[in-house]
C-alpha cells in the first residue's frame, strides 16, 4: 500500500523533530520577545509537519491554521500593543536559570526515560503494509466523531462496549459554547478604557 515509507518517514521525522526542538530551545533562550514569537512559529510549524507525518493530516493543517495562523498572530499582536523599549528584552536572573535548569533537566530525564521504558512503545510497527488507507485519511471520520458517530469502532463485537463509544458530540457542544463565551469575555476584557486613577498613581510612584 505505502511502499518504502520507512526511510522517508525517518528522514522527515528527524528533520522536523530537530527543527521543532531546536527552535523550542531558541524560544527559551531568546530574550527579545519578538524573536521568541518568530522561533515559536517555526517550532509549531515544524511540529505540524510531525503531525502530518504521523498520519494526522487534518490535525497538522489545523495546527497551522489555528495555532500558527490564529493564536500566534494574536500573540504577536499583543507583543506589538505592549511593545516598549523596556519590555522588549527582559533578562532572567541567574539564580532562576539555575533552579529552572535543575528542575527542567530532572523532568526531561524522567520523561525520556519513561518514553523508552515500555516495550510496546519502543518496538516499531512491523506490518506497515497492513495500514489501510481508511486509517490514514481521517478528516471525514474526525468530523463524524465530533457528530457522535464512530465509524472506526463500528466493528466492535460487544454491543455493550459499542454503546460507550458514542463519540464526542457532547464535548463538541461544550467546546462550542465555551468558545462563544471566551469570545465575548475576551472582547469585554480587552475593550478600551480610560486610564484608571490606580494606574496613574502607579505611574506617579515610578
Amino acid at each position: 500500500m505505502i511502499p518504502s515509507i520507512t526511510d522517508w518517514h525517518s528522514f522527515f521525522f528527524y528533520l522536523f523533530a530537530t527543527v521543532t526542538c531546536v527552535f523550542a530551545l531558541a524560544v527559551l533562550f531568546a530574550t527579545n520577545i519578538v524573536r521568541m514569537a518568530f522561533y515559536l512559529i517555526i517550532s509549531l510549524g515544524a511540529s505540524a509537519g510531525l503531525f502530518i507525518l504521523a498520519g494526522a493530516e487534518f490535525l497538522g493543517v489545523m495546527q497551522l491554521m489555528i495555532y500558527v495562523g490564529g493564536t500566534l498572530v494574536l500573540l504577536v499582536f499583543g507583543v506589538m500593543l505592549t511593545a516598549q523599549e523596556r519590555f522588549i528584552s527582559m533578562k532572567t536572573r541567574g539564580g532562576e536559570w539555575v533552579m529552572a535548569a535543575i528542575v527542567g533537566g530532572a523532568l526531561l530525564v524522567l520523561l525520556v526515560q519513561t518514553a523508552f521504558s515500555i516495550d510496546d512503545w519502543t518496538a516499531p510497527r512491523a506490518d506497515l503494509s497492513a495500514v489501510s488507507a481508511i486509517e490514514t485519511q481521517t478528516a471525514t471520520r474526525l468530523g463524524l466523531g465530533l457528530l457522535g458517530i464512530r465509524p472506526d469502532q463500528a466493528e466492535e463485537a460487544d454491543p455493550v462496549l459499542r454503546q460507550g463509544m458514542s463519540g464526542y458530540l457532547l464535548l463538541f457542544e461544550i467546546v462550542s459554547v465555551h468558545l462563544l463565551v471566551v469570545l465575548i469575555g475576551a472582547a469585554y476584557l480587552a475593550r478600551s478604557k480610560r486610564v484608571t486613577s490606580l494606574a496613574r498613581a502607579a505611574e506617579m510612584r515610578r
Binding site: 523533530a17 530551545l25 511540529s47 525520556v112
Partner: peptide, 13 residues
C-alpha cells in the same frame, strides 16, 4: 521511528 521517538520530542517541548 517508534512512539518513543515522538514522545521524546513531546518531552522536549
Amino acid at each position: 521511528i517508534t512512539v518513543s521517538h515522538y514522545l521524546v520530542v513531546g518531552a522536549v517541548l
